[in-house]
């Protein structure tokens, strides 16, 4: 069996790509990942997807339709309900496979294992294994999953490097991975921050084992994993950074809560906070103005 399977380079791909790509390859598929978001892909999503969806979700639909147009009739779109106990992903993502299916021809088949860590820490593992058993005998499926998990763990460990702050201006970048890691959607934010001479650290640098206890000071635990990770990472990093930059898709409900939590925590500290909302704008002028002004502010604050 050497069957091609498409993986859209969007949303939870940025969290789980080592696991997904390795696992599917080990199961005998040939994973085909769509190229990094570009104008053509985003435009497909914008013209297809429901108007009220957020930018990254529209981009996902663009990636999926792009893959289908390349002749792929199998797509890997897991239904990510929860990645951590007692927490959810956002409501749009809960129903992702159903939403995407409605925009694709009926001949396209989606593989959508359900990942729901609320039902138990081991649930995602079982779900992956059950998926693998459709194609391989039990021992081989288990070995495939174990190899994939090892690759995933290795990458996550490599990202958990909090010593990478170079001095000068240090910024904690908070926002969903599918924005911080997608250079097209975020308007090349990371390169601009680098040009402005800042050191950047993201919430990915802190594992759940650190952010979960760190966020426990909140009166009520947040529903959303991304919010808890952001608040926890801020709590850990707050004394080592000069500013916090939050990026979010325009109209994101989960972020509305996070912005308030981050803002209130920052207001008592020496750091400053800037929120940036991303949407379909094709001109980077607005983004650049905000980033430059933010860096000016941090510099003047430091020197005076």
């Amino acid at each position: 069996m050497n069957c091609k399977i498409g993986i859209p380079r969007a949303l939870y791909y940025f969290h789980f790509f080592p696991l997904w790509e390795t696992f599917l390859a080990e199961l005998g598929f040939e994973p085909v990942v769509s190229p990094p978001t570009n104008q053509d892909i985003l435009q497909r999503g914008l013209s297809t997807c429901v108007e009220s969806a957020c930018l990254p979700l529209k981009a996902f639909v663009g990636h999926a339709t792009f893959l289908v147009e390349q002749g792929l009739d199998l797509l890997f779109v897991p239904q990510v309900i929860s990645v951590f106990r007692k927490e959810y992903t956002c409501p749009y993502l809960l129903g992702l496979p159903d939403l995407v299916r409605s925009y694709l021809p009926a001949t396209v088949r989606l593989f959508s294992p359900v990942l729901d860590a609320r039902r138990g820490k081991g649930q995602p593992t079982f779900s992956y294994l059950r998926f693998g058993l459709q194609f391989k005998p039990p021992l081989q499926a288990f070995k495939a999953w174990r190899r994939a998990k090892a690759v995933q763990d290795e990458l996550e460990k490599a990202q958990q490097n909090t010593n990478s702050l170079p001095g000068g201006l240090n910024i904690l970048l908070l926002g969903p991975r599918y924005l911080t890691d997608d250079a097209y959607l975020n308007g090349n934010l990371l390169r601009k921050l680098e040009e402005l001479g800042t050191g950047v650290i993201t919430a990915a640098a802190y594992p759940d084992a650190i952010t979960w206890p760190a966020a426990r000071f909140l009166a009520k635990p947040p529903y959303w994993t991304s919010t808890r990770r952001a608040v926890g990472a801020l709590e850990q990093a707050i004394n080592r950074i000069d500013g916090v930059l939050s990026i979010a898709p325009f109209g994101c409900g989960a972020h509305a809560m996070q912005g308030v939590l981050v803002g209130s925590r920052i207001s008592g500290s020496k750091a400053a906070h800037l929120q940036i909302y991303l949407d379909e704008h094709t001109s980077p002028v607005g983004l650049v103005t905000r980033l430059e002004a933010f860096c000016d502010l941090l510099e003047r604050k430091m020197s005076g």
């Binding site: 325009f250 400053a272 003047r300």
Partner: peptide, 12 residues
Amino acid sequence: DGVVVDFAMNTV
């Protein structure tokens, strides 16, 4: 004290 400490701009 003569230093910009915070700013906000219209969103999108």
